[in-house]
Simulated assay, not measured.
Amino acid sequence: MDTVWQWLSEIPDPEIPVLSLTDLGVIRDVSWQDETLVVTVTPTYSGCPATAVINLDIETKLLECGVTKVRLEQQLSPPWTTDWLTQEGRAKLRAYGIAPPVDGTRSDSSAAGRLARLTGQGSFQVACPRCGSENTEKVSQFGSTPCKAAYRCRSCLEPFDYFKCH
């Protein structure tokens, strides 16, 4: 199984190619059922347009590696969360210029938690991925993709994306 996980770790996320699918945490399980390799995938959200590309990339990679019988299973519960990002994935985001999610800031499912998430309110500080300063400000709740917010560093004056907690 380690070999299969290694192959899957070589597949980049279609929206943030610096991350692999395993860095992102969307591959939940890999198992053999008779002669079929079953890969369980949890999309980052149920309507994610990249899901079809991710599934095709998984099938293509495994076929290239000689696995001819593959079944992909989609698992929606529990829903994907940024808590599943690996530490290596968080470091890759930072090196790429995207601030990783701030630990402990994932919104709860209460009405107040949803409202805080939707309005971008919160008391946490996002560190600049370039200079490390926490003297930053949110420019927009939405960045280059819906899962990111646009920020600016007041110290180095550089703009950057923040990978929002989900």
Rank of each mutant, 00 (worst) to 15 (best):
100 P>H: 03
58 I>G: 00
137 E>M: 13
71 R>F: 10
155 S>M: 13
26 V>W: 09
49 P>K: 05
126 V>W: 07
20 S>E: 00
85 L>I: 04
106 R>Y: 08
105 T>H: 08
14 P>Y: 04
56 L>C: 06
15 E>N: 06
138 K>D: 03
27 I>W: 04
97 G>T: 07
46 S>R: 14
41 V>Q: 06
140 S>W: 12
28 R>H: 07
50 A>F: 09
68 T>Q: 15
133 S>W: 06
40 T>H: 04
154 R>S: 08
123 S>E: 10
146 P>A: 00
135 N>E: 12
73 E>A: 09
135 N>R: 11
36 T>V: 13
33 Q>E: 15
129 P>G: 01
157 L>D: 12
126 V>A: 12
2 D>E: 11
119 T>C: 02
4 V>I: 15
165 C>L: 10
59 E>Y: 08
149 A>R: 02
93 L>I: 05
114 R>F: 15
162 Y>P: 01
72 L>W: 11
142 F>R: 14
103 D>K: 15
115 L>F: 13
59 E>W: 09
38 V>Q: 04
144 S>E: 15
109 S>N: 13
66 G>I: 00
18 V>Y: 00
141 Q>A: 15
103 D>H: 11
27 I>N: 02
26 V>K: 05
99 A>Q: 09
92 K>R: 12
4 V>T: 09
16 I>W: 02
43 P>W: 01
61 K>Y: 11
28 R>Q: 12
156 C>K: 08
11 I>D: 09
97 G>W: 10
62 L>C: 03
76 L>W: 13
57 D>Y: 13
51 T>E: 05
1 M>W: 10
114 R>V: 13
30 V>K: 11
39 V>Q: 03
71 R>Y: 11
16 I>V: 07
143 G>M: 07
62 L>M: 08
36 T>R: 13
125 Q>A: 15
156 C>G: 08
91 A>W: 05
144 S>L: 14
75 Q>N: 12
101 P>F: 02
119 T>A: 01
27 I>D: 05
101 P>N: 11
4 V>C: 06
130 R>F: 13
35 E>A: 15
62 L>K: 00
35 E>T: 12
160 F>R: 07
45 Y>C: 03
73 E>L: 14
1 M>T: 06
149 A>P: 00
148 K>S: 04
72 L>C: 14
126 V>E: 03
93 L>E: 02
